[in-house]
Structures are given as structure tokens and as C-alpha cells.
């Protein structure tokens, strides 16, 4: 078995690693690679999905499934969530993976501070659940449609995907949202959670539309690119 020929250097990579500047003052970014199947003992942490301060009466549950292009659950996805604080602050707070200095173990959040950050792996059935506070618009733009930012990692996904969870109560604000208002209605609907009980919302993430389409139920989630 011979190595495929490589135009630069041998063994597929050039000899000189170079953070090549493509434009003056701009560094070339480090490429993404898949999170792979074995992050489970490294990245998830106890209480990763418990973003809301303990016992907070405003707590909502956001839950759903991550599905692939065959409509099958993705059991090895990792979801991360980032949202404004209840006061609209976008500073966040440390303490999501608070540690026990005696044992080094993650003891979880202090139950007081809202860090704005959550991390939840999907289970064997592709499901996740997050308990958090309702999304808030940034303080500087209080009339904006509130949303929770989501980042999706998975084995088989070479570069993470961003999406957003908007909420069905905010329909009026959605009409003015620069993202939602620029999408066809069927596409935009993939970004709005549906009410699923009291203070409970369902938000599924479809990484790929099934081959045959599948109507609204099989619509691929809108993913985002930031420029």
C-alpha cells in the first residue's frame, strides 16, 4: 500500500508548520476536527444541564432529540448552550464546572450564580434535557427576540454547528428578528421550540434532512455561520 502523493512535503503535510497570514494582521485559524466518540469521560460534567439556580421558580425545561439524516437518534452528540443572564448581561459568570479542591471532582454549580453556560451530552436515544432560565434579550437591546445559542458537536461532524432556540411566546419579536425574518417560514420554524407542557419546551435538532424530504417534521434545522 503506497502513500497517496502529496504536493507539499511528505506524509501529507508540509514540513514547515505555519500559521500563514493570509492578509496582513490576520492569522490563519486552527482547523476544526471532530469531537470523536470518546469525549464522554472528559467534557460532560455533573450539573452541566442544570443552568438555572437551584429551585428557581422561573426554571424552564428545554429538551429534545438530535437526529441524523436517516431520522435515527444521534447518541454521541454534545450540546453546549450560551445565553444572556436574567438581567440581559452577556458577561457570563465562572463556576459552571466548580471543583472540590480536596478531591478535584466537579461538585457542580453553587446553585446561586447563573453562569449562562450549559453542556449536555445526548443519551443512547439521542435525547438531551436542559433546565435553565427563560431566554433574555441582551440588556442593550431589550426588545430583541430572546434566544439560547446552541453549539452542536458529534462524532462524524468535522466542524461544530451553531443554531438557536427561540421561544413560541415571542412571535411578535420574531417578525423583527434579523435571522428569523430572513428565512422562509418552514425553515424559520426549525428554530422555534414548541410548548410541551408547563414551562417545558421541545427542540429537536435534525443534522440533515432525510433523502426523501419529509415535510415540516423532517425539516433540517437551520444552522448558522458567523462572519
Amino acid at each position: 500500500m503506497s502513500a497517496p502523493s502529496a504536493p507539499h512535503g511528505h506524509q501529507g503535510v508540509p514540513h514547515q508548520p505555519a500559521p500563514a497570514a493570509q492578509t496582513p494582521g490576520a492569522l490563519a485559524p486552527t482547523p476544526s476536527q471532530t469531537i470523536g466518540p470518546f469525549y464522554g469521560y472528559a467534557l460532560p460534567f455533573p450539573g452541566g444541564g442544570e443552568m438555572a439556580p437551584a429551585g428557581h421558580p422561573g426554571t424552564i425545561t428545554l429538551h429534545g432529540r438530535v437526529l441524523d439524516g436517516a431520522g435515527e437518534p444521534v447518541p454521541d452528540a454534545l450540546l453546549e448552550f450560551w445565553q444572556a443572564g436574567p438581567d440581559g448581561s452577556l458577561r457570563g459568570a465562572p463556576g459552571s464546572l466548580r471543583r472540590d479542591p480536596a478531591t478535584g471532582a466537579v461538585v457542580g454549580r453553587d446553585g446561586v450564580e447563573f453562569t449562562g453556560f450549559g453542556r449536555v451530552p445526548t443519551d443512547a436515544d439521542g435525547r438531551y434535557a436542559l433546565r435553565t432560565l427563560p431566554a433574555t434579550a441582551p440588556a442593550s437591546r431589550p426588545a430583541a427576540a430572546p434566544y439560547i445559542a446552541v453549539c452542536v458537536f458529534a462524532r462524524g461532524l468535522l466542524h461544530h454547528l451553531f443554531t438557536r432556540v427561540y421561544f413560541p411566546e415571542d412571535t411578535a419579536a420574531h417578525a423583527a428578528d434579523p435571522l428569523l425574518s430572513g428565512l422562509p417560514a418552514q425553515r424559520a420554524s426549525t428554530l422555534v421550540a414548541r410548548t410541551d407542557g408547563e414551562r417545558r419546551y421541545r427542540f429537536d435538532i435534525r443534522l440533515q434532512a432525510p433523502d426523501a424530504g419529509g415535510g415540516e417534521a423532517g425539516e433540517e434545522t437551520v444552522f448558522l455561520e458567523f462572519r
Binding site: 458577561r91 459568570a93 434566544y147 440533515q208 455561520e225
Partner: peptide, 27 residues
């Protein structure tokens, strides 16, 4: 089966400077 077929929706940081994603978690 794990890559989107649809193009990504672009968000321009200059036109939407208060997008939540332009800030991030603190540790």
C-alpha cells in the same frame, strides 16, 4: 448522515453586533 445539506444561514457580526454568540461563557 451527519452533515447538513442546506446552506448555513450567515450572521454578519457588523450588522448584528449584539448577537448573543459574539460573547461567550466565562471560566
Amino acid at each position: 448522515l451527519r452533515h447538513p445539506r442546506q446552506p448555513l444561514a450567515a450572521i454578519d457580526a457588523l450588522r448584528d453586533p449584539e448577537a448573543v454568540e459574539l460573547t461567550g461563557p466565562a471560566f
